[in-house]
């Protein structure tokens, strides 16, 4: 196998780089020979045992459910507010400061405040995640709304397009790349925040498990849960987001 064929086939290249990553990890683990860096096989064994015992699927499921809820709420609200602020200059002027404040509050602060104000309950956890993600969605969608093509909106108006028709066929396709951008950064951001939320105030979920493993100094467990979660996020990317992109952007040359 030459370097050239590696360069030409992206699939082969990503396979080789993954193997290389595992190899480096394995070598480092053998060299250090420490419980703080278990070998890949040891981590794989933990993933297997936790899966068979039902612990991993349960906690992963709980975290994914929280992810789904908070993500949907943040996206829906964010799109609505973002479109409103992008279309209405006065509204945008008025609420711009709020947005700046919320964008700059550290995630940890909102989480702590939500738990202090509402107690260690489920909706406080969801709210904390939504409040963290919402400003990002609003900003992205607002920028998207500002770039809407005025020529096409005029065309829609002159042909008496209904509100629904205008949104579905004129506005949404233009906002789509921005919504997908917000979705991708959103997934990455939200699942990290959810873990902190779970660590601080929930008694189930991946974050809670990580907390337990931390107290036991069980690095294999920590790595096992992290890798499992990263895999799930990748599966979402490849099985849902990529095909959606392909379908929605097929009109591009």
């Amino acid at each position: 196998m030459t370097v050239r064929s590696l360069y030409d086939s992206p699939r082969l290249a990503s396979l080789v780089s993954s193997v290389l990553f595992l190899l480096v990890w394995q070598l480092l683990a053998s060299y250090l020979d420490s419980t703080t860096l278990p070998a890949p096989l040891a981590v794989a064994r933990v993933i297997w045992l936790e899966t068979v015992s039902g612990q991993l699927p349960y906690h992963l499921g709980v975290t994914l459910l929280r992810l789904a809820f908070s993500f949907s709420i943040a996206m829906l609200l964010g799109c609505a507010i973002g479109i409103a602020m992008g279309r209405n200059e006065k509204l945008n002027h008025f609420f711009d400061n709020w947005l700046v404040i919320f964008l700059n509050i550290p995630a940890l602060v909102t989480i702590i405040l939500c738990y202090v104000w509402f107690g260690l309950v489920e909706y406080a956890a969801i709210l904390a995640v939504v409040v963290n993600k919402l400003p990002n969605v609003i900003v992205t969608i607002r920028e998207g709304t500002r770039t809407l093509d005025r020529d096409l909106l005029e065309m829609a108006k002159s042909y008496h397009f209904s509100k629904r028709k205008t949104f579905l066929h004129v506005i949404w396709p233009q906002l789509y790349p921005f919504v997908m951008g917000a979705t991708r950064t959103g997934l990455a951001l939200i699942w990290k925040i959810i873990l902190v939320v779970e660590l601080l105030g929930r008694s189930d979920g991946v974050g809670y498990q990580l907390h337990l493993f931390f107290q036991l100094f069980d690095v294999a467990g920590i790595l096992a849960y992290s890798i499992a979660f990263v895999c799930v996020i990748q599966i979402i990317e490849f099985s849902i987001l990529k095909p959606l992109d392909k379908k929605a952007l097929r009109w591009r040359r």
């Binding site: 020529d151 096409l152 005029e154 065309m155 066929h169 004129v170 396709p173 929605a248 009109w251």
Partner: peptide, 10 residues
């Protein structure tokens, strides 16, 4: 219109 103003995604 002076330019066609077709929806590129339809």
């Amino acid at each position: 219109f002076q330019n066609p103003r077709l929806l590129p995604w339809r």
